[in-house]
Write a protein that binds this DNA or RNA. Structure first.
Length: 210
DNA sequence: ACGAGGATGCTCT
DNA sequence: GAGCATCCTCGTG
C-alpha cells in the first residue's frame, strides 16, 4: 500500500461530551498495525456512549458514590483517548475509548466497523465469518478481526504507534447518522445513546438499522 | 428467519 | 454467588 491519507485523532477530539464524540466517531477510521506490520483498518459505523450518571456505565458505582476512581472502571476517569478493553461474558474483548476531561467518567464503545484494509488477515482471524461486511460487525467480532486484545488496555490512542483512530484526509464516504437505544443492556435502555451509520451493511445484529 | 442455550472468566456496575 | 456493553451452533418453521 502507498502512503496512507490519514490524520490521527488527537486528545482534543476525545476531550468533549461523550455523546458528541460517539456521534463524531462514525465515519472515522480505527487502525491497528499488528506485530507482523500488517495494517488493519476499519471505518467506524456503530458506537455507544457511556457516561458516569448512566446506570449502564461500568463506572456508575464510582460516580454515584462520589469516590476516587478505582478498579477496572476507574480507567474511565483517565485521559481522553485512553483505550479501555475488557473481557465480556468471559469470551469477548470489547474495545472502548475514554472521553471527557481527565477526572470525568465517559467512554465510547466501538460496536462495528466496515473493513477497509487488512481484510485477508481479518478473514484468517475469523474463519467462521463468510461475508466481508460482517467481519467487524459486533464489538466482540471487531476486536478479534482487528487483532486487538487486553495488551492494549490503558494505552493512549492519541500517541500510540500501532493502535489509534484517524480521519481520512482524502475522499470520505457519505453517511447518515441515526440514534437508537443501546444493545444488550438491562439498565439505561431508554437512553438513545447508540449511534449508527444507518445504511451501512456492516452493522451488528441481524436487523441492520432502525 | 429466528429463538434458545451454552461457553467462559472477571468484577462486584 | 450473581451478573454481565456477546457470539456461535443447532433446533424448529
Amino acid at each position: 500500500m502507498v502512503k496512507p491519507s490519514w490524520k490521527r485523532l488527537d486528545k482534543a477530539f476525545f476531550e468533549r461530551h461523550t455523546l458528541e464524540v460517539a456521534a463524531d466517531l462514525i465515519g472515522k477510521l480505527l487502525i491497528h498495525r499488528d506485530a507482523d506490520g500488517t495494517y488493519h483498518v476499519g471505518r467506524v459505523v456503530e458506537t455507544e456512549a457511556y457516561r458516569g450518571e448512566d446506570p449502564a456505565c461500568h463506572a456508575h458505582h464510582i460516580w454515584r458514590t462520589n469516590r476516587a476512581p478505582f478498579g477496572r472502571a476507574g480507567i474511565l476517569y483517565d485521559e481522553p483517548g485512553t483505550a479501555y478493553i475488557y473481557l465480556n461474558y468471559g469470551v469477548h474483548w470489547l474495545f472502548n475509548v475514554v472521553t471527557e476531561s481527565k477526572g470525568e467518567a465517559g467512554a465510547v464503545l466501538i460496536r462495528a466497523l466496515e473493513p477497509v484494509q487488512g481484510i485477508a488477515s481479518m478473514q484468517a482471524r475469523r474463519p467462521q465469518c463468510r461475508k466481508i461486511d460482517k467481519l467487524c460487525a459486533g464489538p466482540g467480532n471487531l476486536t478479534k478481526a482487528m487483532g486487538i486484545g487486553p495488551e492494549y488496555n490503558g494505552i493512549q490512542t492519541t500517541q500510540h504507534a500501532t493502535l489509534f483512530f484517524a480521519e481520512e484526509t482524502a475522499e470520505k464516504p457519505a453517511h447518515l447518522i441515526k440514534t437508537t437505544s443501546r444493545i444488550g443492556i438491562n439498565k439505561g435502555q431508554e437512553l438513545p445513546w447508540r449511534f449508527i451509520s444507518a445504511k451501512s451493511p456492516a452493522l451488528s445484529g441481524s436487523m441492520a438499522s432502525i
